[in-house]
Structure formats: C-alpha cells, structure tokens
Amino acid sequence: MTTGRTGRTGRIERAVAFALRNFEVVFAAGIGLTIGFLDIFGDKLIESDLASGATLVVLGALAVGSLSERARRPLAIQDAMAGTRRAIEDLTMVRSLAGNEVRDELRKARQSTNLWYFKGGTGTYLRAVTLPECVRAAKQNRSQLNVKIEILNPADERACATYAQFRRMFSGTGTGSGSHGGDLWTPARARKESYATVLAACWYRMQLTTLDISVHLSSTVPTLRFDLSDSCLIITQDDPNRVNLKVERGQPLYDYYLTELHQSREQATTLDLRDATLLSLSPTVDEVRALFDALALPLPRTYTEADVGGIIEKALHAEDPYGR
C-alpha cells in the first residue's frame, strides 16, 4: 500500500514539474480546447460560429501535440546518445598494433592465463615463446593450463607448398618470421616447422601433468594467426604493411572468434596425443620417429638423421620471430 501511494505521489510530482517547465504550452492547450468545445457543444455561451470553434479545437490539439513532442524529446535524445555510445564502443572493440607492439601485447596476454588457443601456419612463436612461458607459469602457480593448437597439416604436401608460396610473397627477401640463418620458405621447410610444433606439444605435455593440450591439423592454408587467451584475442599476419589487431575479452568480436576457432578445429584432423610414446628430456632421433609413427603421422622415410635433428632443434629451441 505504501509503495503504491509513493508511486502515485511521484507521478503527481513529475506531472507538476513538467507543467511548470512547459507552462506556455499547457496554458495555450487548456484555453484553446476549453473555448473550442464550449463553442461547438455549449449553449452559445460564447458568441462564435462553428468554424471558429473548430479552429480553436484544432489549435488546442496542435498545442497538445507540441506538448507531447516535448515529452518524447528527452527519450529520443537518450536513444540517440545510446546509439552513439554503441557506435563508439564498436569502434574501440578492436585496437590496432604496430609490429613492435605485438610482442608486448602477447606477453601481457600470457600473464595469469589458464588457456591459450592458437590457429596459424606452423606455430613458430607458439613453440618458441608461448608454450614454454605458459608451461613455466603453470608450474609455478600449480595451475591447470588448457592449450589448443591448429596448424598446417605437414602430411598435406600441396597445402605446405601453397603456404610456403604465401610466406615468400610477403617476406621480401624470401625469409619470414622465425627464419633460421636466412632459410627460404619452401614446402620442405613448412613441413618440418609443422612437425616441430607437433613434437613440441608432445614434449611439453610430458613436462606438465596439468597441461591439457590438443593438436589439430588443417589442410586449409591460413593467412592470419590467432592467439586467444583469457584476456584477449590477438590477430597477426606476415604482411609487414598491414596492422595487427587486438580484441579485448568481453567484446562481441572475442566471442565470435572463440566460436569460429572452435568450429575450425572441429573440421581439422585431431591428433590423439594419448598415443604419443615417451620422450626423454633430450629426445633422440629414434624416439621422435617412434613418436610420429604412434601418432599415425609418420615422418617421411627420406628424412635423414640430420633432418630429424633439425626438427628437434626447431621444436625445443626455436628462435623468437619477434626477437628478444
């Protein structure tokens, strides 16, 4: 009962305040409508003809219309302001990153994160920095770490050739991020880089029991790299003439890409890392060959010991493509 009385009192107060703010329009509306209706329906208390009475009614109605417009105007302004705020939020949803900012933003993204989802070509930066740093932090914090990796399928020679061609296109001198000693991007190199990322995933899985890691192999050649953590999504590319992007968690675009990355992994070939054979702290060539055989992703028989040794080096001692 008290609530209802309070509500009515509040409505009366708002009505009085509105009438005072719009006194001239309220007065004109009252006078116009009163005289008009008396002239049309009254007992000729006012000497005027029907037309003048109707005119007064119309004028009174126009005044009421003006009054209503004033009442609606604040709501319209609020709607316009809300729309403007949404537009500004959309513009700030994505932040552009210059080349020298990418490393710092990736470092910030690794801080206190319990998940890392990656999609890209061969994952050089992932095995050079992301995996070792995230695993080290998880060990120190004794926390769970969830890592999902989607990279180029090294068994798909056509996809590897296409990817190598793409990397050469934007590398300028034929080298790209993560090149070793000026190595050219060739189909053979692309395959070895992907094999190295698979090996790195298996090796780090054995170093941390709380690491839940999966590897997905795609035959679709990517042109972008996606790194998603608890706090943000960072999208990078190999063309130095284009900016990189950062999307904060909580923005719609973050959720869109979270779903997109999931769907992409669903369409890729998933390696069952539970079948991986044991690796020593410093894996041998024979151990690595046995590992890939167990994963149903055998290394080419043409690979020499030097080739397999190179894959081990790339897996566990990859160079940071952004420098130190």
Results as ranks from 00 to 15, higher is better:
A164R: 00
Q111Y: 08
P252Y: 06
W185A: 02
T3W: 06
T197G: 07
Q237C: 03
A155W: 03
D293L: 13
R205C: 07
K139A: 12
D49S: 05
F118N: 03
P132N: 14
Q140I: 07
G4H: 15
L281M: 12
A164T: 00
L295Q: 10
N153V: 02
L45R: 14
R72K: 14
N141Y: 10
T124I: 11
L75A: 04
D286Q: 08
L299T: 00
S231D: 03
G250I: 05
H216S: 02
F166A: 12
T236D: 01
I312V: 02
L253P: 04
T259V: 09
R11V: 06
T302E: 15
V58K: 01
I311W: 01
I31Q: 13
D307N: 02
Y117S: 05
D320Y: 12
M206R: 13
G60N: 01
T197M: 03
A161P: 07
L295V: 13
K139M: 09
P132T: 10
V64F: 00
Y257Q: 06
Q207S: 12
G172W: 01
A306V: 11
S229V: 06
A268L: 04
I312M: 01
Y257T: 03
L279F: 07
M81A: 10
E248F: 09
M169T: 09
P222D: 07
G174H: 06
T9R: 00
E248D: 10
G174A: 04
G172E: 02
P283H: 03
A87K: 03
G178D: 00
A276Y: 00
Q237E: 06
V243G: 01
V135I: 12
L316H: 12
E150F: 02
S68D: 11
H262F: 05
R72Y: 14
K108C: 06
L281A: 15
T173H: 11
E260D: 12
D275C: 09
D320E: 10
Q144H: 08
F166R: 13
Y256W: 09
Y322W: 10
A51Q: 13
V243A: 04
L278Q: 14
R127L: 09
V16T: 14
E47I: 02
F23S: 07
L67N: 05
Y195H: 14
T259D: 11
A138D: 07
E101T: 08
R14T: 09
D255T: 08
G10Y: 06
Y117E: 08
T34K: 13
H180A: 04
A188T: 00
P283L: 06
G178L: 00
A200E: 02
I35M: 15
D286N: 06
I77A: 13
A28S: 14
S96A: 12
I213F: 05
F37I: 15
T130I: 14
L131W: 11
T259F: 09
L258I: 05
V147W: 00
P222C: 07
P187D: 09
A188Y: 04
R8S: 15
D307M: 03
V16R: 05
T175Q: 07
I31T: 15
T122V: 04
